[in-house]
Design a protein around this nucleic acid. Sequence first.
DNA 1: TGACCTTGTGAGCGAGTGCTTACAAACGCT
DNA 2: AGCGTTTGTAAGCACTCGCTCACAAGGTCA
Lengths: 193, 193
Amino acid sequence: MTQAPRRKRDSAATKEALLQAASELFTERGFSATTVRDVAARAGVNQALLFRYFGSKQELFAAVLTRNNEQVIAELSAEELPRQLLINLLDSAEPNGEHPLVAMLRSWSDERAAEMLRGELGDRYTERLAELTDADDARLRADLVLAWVFGIGMVRSVLGKSPLSEADPEVIVRYVTRAASALLERTDLSDDR
Amino acid sequence: MTQAPRRKRDSAATKEALLQAASELFTERGFSATTVRDVAARAGVNQALLFRYFGSKQELFAAVLTRNNEQVIAELSAEELPRQLLINLLDSAEPNGEHPLVAMLRSWSDERAAEMLRGELGDRYTERLAELTDADDARLRADLVLAWVFGIGMVRSVLGKSPLSEADPEVIVRYVTRAASALLERTDLSDDR
DNA sequence: TGACCTTGTGAGCGAGTGCTTACAAACGCT
DNA sequence: AGCGTTTGTAAGCACTCGCTCACAAGGTCA
C-alpha cells in the first residue's frame, strides 16, 4: 500500500499555511480552545513543524496577532479608526467573516493571550484614538471608546446575544459615534452620514 | 500515623463551601482555567462530592452564576442599574474584590459558559435597562449600554490595561452616564453628581 | 444491636493536551 | 557520486483534565 504523499519542500509556504490556519482557528474558537493538532491538520502539515517554526503555541498566537493587527492599524487614519473598527467587527458577524479583532476577543480571558493585548498591542489602538481629542485625559477617553467597541464586539460576535447581534450595523455605528462624540469632543468625529 | 481528620457530616455546609470556593475561583480565573480539583481543595472537600452534589463542572458554574446575579438584579432598581453595575465593577478592580460580573467576564469566551450568558441571564439585564427609555428600539439601546459596561469591565478588571485600570471610578462613571444619556433619552438618567 | 441510608474518601480510568525525539526523504553543494 | 543541511514524518512521553467507582465511616430508626 502506498504511503500518504509527502509535502513539497517549501518552508515559506508551510509557515504561511500554518499562520493562515492558526488565524482562522484562533478567530473561530479562541486561544485555549484551539489545539496545535487542529492547526496542523487544517494547514495540511505535520504538527511537529509547528514547533520547529514557531517554538510554541503561544508564540504562534503572538505571530498571528501582530501580523493581522499591524495591517489594520497602519492602514487606517485616526479619524477612520473607531468607525472602521466597528464596521469591520460588525460585518464579521457573518460566519465566514474573519476580523483580526475577533481572535483577540475570543482569547480575552486566557491569561497568556491577555498579556499581549495588555501590552503593546492594546496601547497602539489607544494612542491612535487619543489623537482625536485634545483633552488632557485623552488616553482615558480613548480607552473608554475602545472598551465600548470591544464590548460591542463581545456581545455581538462572541456571545451572539440579540437584539444586538441582529441589529443593522449602520444603526449601531450611528448610535455609537454620536454618543462617543460626547467623549472625544472634536466636531469632526460626528460625520455620520 | 493518624489519618487526615474526616469532615463533619453536613451536606448543606459542604454544598455551600463548594459554591463559595467555586465562586471565588471562577471570578479569579474564569471557567476553563478553574479545575474541579482546585475548587474541591479550596473548599476543603473531596472532589468526588462536587459531582455528587452538582453533577458536573458546568452545572456548578450555572449554580454560581444564577445565585450571584439573582441578587444583583433583584436588589437594584432600573435607574440605579447602569450606575451601580459600573461602580461595583470598578471597585472590584481591587485584588480581593469579587463582583459576580467578573466571573462572567472571565468566562466570556468559553462556549459552554457563554450559553448561560446569552440566554436568560443576559436578557435580564437588557430588559431592566430597556425600561429606561421609551424609544421603540429600547432593547437595542440597552444592549449597547450593557456592552459598554461589559467592555469597560473587560479592559479594566480582566485585562488590567492602563490608563483605564488606574482611572478614578468617579470620573469613568461621569463620562459614561453622560454619554449614555445620548442613547437612553430620558432626562432622569443624567443625575451625575 | 443490626439494617439501612447518607456522607465522605482514595484511587484511577480514559481521553486529550503541548511538546519532543529519532528517523526518513529531498535538496544544494563540491 | 558523496556529503551535510534542511524539511517532513510517525510515534510517544509526561502531564492534566473531568469524571467514576468501590468502599469506609457517621447517622437514624427499629
